[in-house]
């Protein structure tokens, strides 16, 4: 029986807007395939060694909570996480977790917060928050594409460095910065997004891609993920699209 270890980073601090749903999706969709799942909580003061985990998840937090863990992430765990990202460990990161992979976060009052520097991107805070439903185009292999839905809520504007690939294209919503039509980042096997909460449950193609990447790394390139039920994800996505198209959603 295959086994997958999910590292849930700072679950007691970075847990905004249903971010834990992403960890649940990874776990449930593994268990439905009879893959053994271990969820390891990795918070302030906890050890982390390369090879400890197959998939890492870093969510977003409130400012006061990000202040508590940012030193631990950047200074203590930073070098290990960077090396894991470089060597192809799968990471899925949301909002604050995504921003912290970049070089820095510049607050709108000018204060600069140093980040991990694992990926060539940076973020600038602005006063106006983007709070709305979102629709994206995701192309897992550069050919076929999947329509994904989510909800964004962020004041940071993220800009990708030259040649850095976005995770998805914005169809509706603001994405990285509201200007260039990009959403999130994809670097090796690491993904970042501004889409909160139920992103992985509602978009199982992405969940399965993350699982497959991790399992192939562990059990060889021939590993193929068994198809399973989507548990109502497509219906949720269609309902969300209908809800957005009929104009009931509100862009703030």
């Amino acid at each position: 029986m295959e086994k997958i270890v999910i590292g849930h980073f700072y679950p007691d601090l970075l847990n905004l807007y249903g971010d834990r749903g992403n960890v649940l999706a990874l776990a449930v969709r593994s268990r439905l395939r009879d893959i053994e799942v271990e969820i390891r909580n990795i918070s302030v003061g906890d050890d982390l060694k390369e090879g400890d985990i197959d998939i890492g998840f870093i969510g977003g937090g409130q400012d006061s909570e990000q202040n508590i863990m940012s030193d631990d992430l950047v200074k203590v765990k930073g070098p290990v996480i960077k090396s894991m990202i470089e060597s192809g460990t799968v990471f899925f990161t949301v909002c604050g977790g995504y921003q912290m992979l970049g070089k820095y976060y510049k607050e709108h009052d000018g204060k600069v917060i140093e980040c991990l520097g694992a990926i060539d991107l940076y973020t600038e805070g602005e006063k106006e928050r983007f709070i709305n439903d979102t629709v994206y185009e995701f192309s897992p292999d550069g050919k076929s594409s999947v329509t994904c839905v989510g909800f964004e809520n962020h004041s940071g504007r993220t800009y990708l460095g030259e040649g850095v690939m976005p995770f998805m294209k914005v169809v509706k919503g603001h994405g990285n910065n509201g200007k260039d039509g990009t959403e999130g980042v994809r670097y090796k096997n690491t993904f970042g997004t501004y889409s909160h909460g139920s992103f992985l449950p509602k978009n199982p193609e992405v969940t399965d891609l993350l699982l497959e990447l991790a399992l192939k790394r562990k059990y060889g390139e021939d590993y193929i993920l068994k198809p399973i039920d989507d548990l109502g994800a497509k219906e949720a996505r269609e309902a969300a699209l209908k809800y957005i198209e009929t104009g009931k959603e509100q862009m703030i």
């Binding site: 834990r20 709070i131 909160h196 909460g197 703030i252």
Partner: peptide, 19 residues
């Protein structure tokens, strides 16, 4: 529902331990 008075974002249901 997700009207303004409810909050537009329904992802909070994933914060709840249904399991």
């Amino acid at each position: 529902n997700s009207n303004f008075a409810d909050g537009k974002d329904v992802s909070w249901i994933w914060d709840v331990d249904f399991e």
